[in-house]
Design a protein around this nucleic acid. Structure first.
Length: 439
RNA sequence: GCCCCGAUGGUGUAGCGGCCUAUCAUCCGAGCCUGUCGAGCUCGGGACACGGAUUCAAAUUCCGUUCGGGGCGCCA
């Protein structure tokens, strides 16, 4: 069988050579005596050219294949600076591998748009679009950069169970499922297991894995299944150590996307500016103070509502010209349900917990955890949590637990803000939300 | 879960109770065209979400259902 040549392998040495290329027929421009067939493969598009007078039969056949059919084409490479990629494949024969039906339920290169819902219903066709593929190439770069960063910083990649018996923050947001003869849940966070691993002495771990939230949150930034990038490390002095790690990770990822993904980024009209480190720290109190001055954006519990988060994002953008920022020192009243958060020794009304925001969207949340058994159990009591249910977790704290902290980062959220995408569902191949379970 | 908005060819849209056997684009089909690169030109094809109500007359008004969009609460 003849090797299939990809676009990137076609160099000057291959000019005037016979090769075989393969792909999807994206467009046929039949001018009568000559036809240009635009074909697409994983690396992009290339042009196949057929001239009628050279081979009328071949011309008729190939020029009439339906769009999006898969074909292989044998021909001679001809250098031509006016053609995309600087060459065209002068077809000598072709094979129709798989014919596409008509009409397509979703146009791949149509000049009209399609609703996101239509696109997701026909995702296999939507994913054929160069721009959509570029997004997932960028996502690949992002995740590889993360792994590289964690490895370089002494973190061990781990995998904690996604089928669990208890959640991290109460039962309201958990998906339940039958588990043999008992009930189980899909993990909404690896939180408790990451902490157990700190007790186990792993010191530094990270996990890139799905997290499941059954919250009925029907918004452009929520999905029921998302990829959570979690890190946890021991022997920290304060939440500041966690923020330091977090911002270096984000910087590293953006840098990698910019350097390795420049080609893909051309299809996304964003000017990606690398943030200056350290990122700006704004205390939660300062945010509330700012919003108080505006007279909006706060909730009765002393926290920020969605509008408030957006206003803070805009405030920082306008005042300092920065996209990324930390909101620090979340008050105990706001993170109250997060029983494992360490509270400020001097002011128990505050914690060291922080959020990393980008233009009003929460990307990360983290901080130093409570590692002292007596304090932890007291905080659990405040949340009316059943010790029995959490015994597997609590046990670790009775037999040697170092001070530790970490964060959880929403992978899709990061990609969403970086590329300035309206709906987070676009960042997932096959998103799951309140109503979507197919495809 | 709550609030607001919407549903017209495969796709995206225009549409004042009668001028609607419904607009435009894209797409599909037939034809012309030897350098296209959003190819061009000619001709043709295809739709009012579903159920009920009001009316002489409903794509258009009203009610219900289903589906979709935006926002909120909550969060990554």
């Amino acid at each position: 069988m003849t090797e299939i040549t990809h676009i990137s392998s076609v160099d000057e040495d291959l000019h005037d050579q016979k090769i075989r290329m393969a792909g999807w027929i994206q467009d046929v421009r039949n001018l009568g005596g000559i036809a240009f067939i635009i074909m697409r493969e994983r690396e992009g598009v290339f042009q196949v050219t057929v001239i009628k007078k050279n081979d009328p039969e071949l011309f008729e056949k190939i020029a009439n294949v339906s769009r999006e059919s898969v074909v292989t084409v044998d021909g001679t490479v001809q250098g031509n600076e006016e053609v995309i990629n600087g060459f065209e494949l002068m077809a000598e024969s072709f094979e129709l591998i798989s014919e596409a039906g008509t009409p397509l339920p979703l146009g791949v290169i149509d000049k009209v748009g399609a609703d996101l819902d239509t696109r997701l219903n026909n995702r296999f066709l939507d994913l054929r679009k160069e721009k959509v593929l570029a997004l997932f190439k960028l996502r690949d770069i992002m995740e590889r950069a993360m792994r590289g960063f964690f490895t370089d910083n002494g973190f061990l990649e781990v995998h904690t169970p996604k089928i669990v018996a208890a959640g991290a923050e109460g039962g309201a947001t958990l998906f339940s499922l039958k588990y043999f003869d008992s009930e189980a849940y899909l993990a909404q966070s690896p939180q408790l297991y990451k902490q157990i691993l700190m007790g186990a002495g792993f010191e530094r771990v990270y996990e890139i894995a799905p997290a499941y939230r059954a919250e009925a949150s029907d918004t452009v930034r929520h999905i029921a299944e998302f990829i959570s990038v979690d890190a946890e490390m021991s022997f920290i002095k304060s939440s500041e150590d966690v923020m330091d790690l977090c911002e270096r990770l984000v910087y590293h990822v953006l840098k990698a996307m910019k350097e390795e993904g420049s080609h893909s980024l051309e299809l996304w009209p964003v000017d990606m500016v690398l943030p200056k480190l350290p990122l700006r720290r704004v205390t939660h109190e300062e945010c509330i103070g700012y919003l108080g001055g505006l007279g909006k954006g706060t909730d009765p519990e002393g926290g920020m509502d969605t509008e408030g988060e957006k206003l803070v994002g805009r405030w920082i953008r306008e005042k300092h010209g920065e996209d990324f920022y930390f909101i620090t020192e979340f008050p105990t009243s706001v993170v109250g349900r997060t029983f494992y958060a360490m509270r400020n020794v001097d002011d128990p009304e505050l914690t060291g917990y922080f959020d990393l925001g980008c233009r009003g969207l929460e990307i990360v949340s983290g901080g130093q955890r409570e590692h002292r058994y007596d304090v932890l159990t007291k905080q659990m009591e405040e949340n009316n949590l059943d010790f029995e249910e959490f015994e597997f977790y609590l046990k670790t704290f009775r037999f040697g637990m170092p001070p530790h902290g970490g964060f959880g980062l929403g992978a899709e959220r990061l990609l969403q803000t970086v590329l300035d995408i309206k709906n987070i569902r676009e960042c997932v191949l096959f998103p799951r939300d309140r109503v979507r379970l197919v495809p």
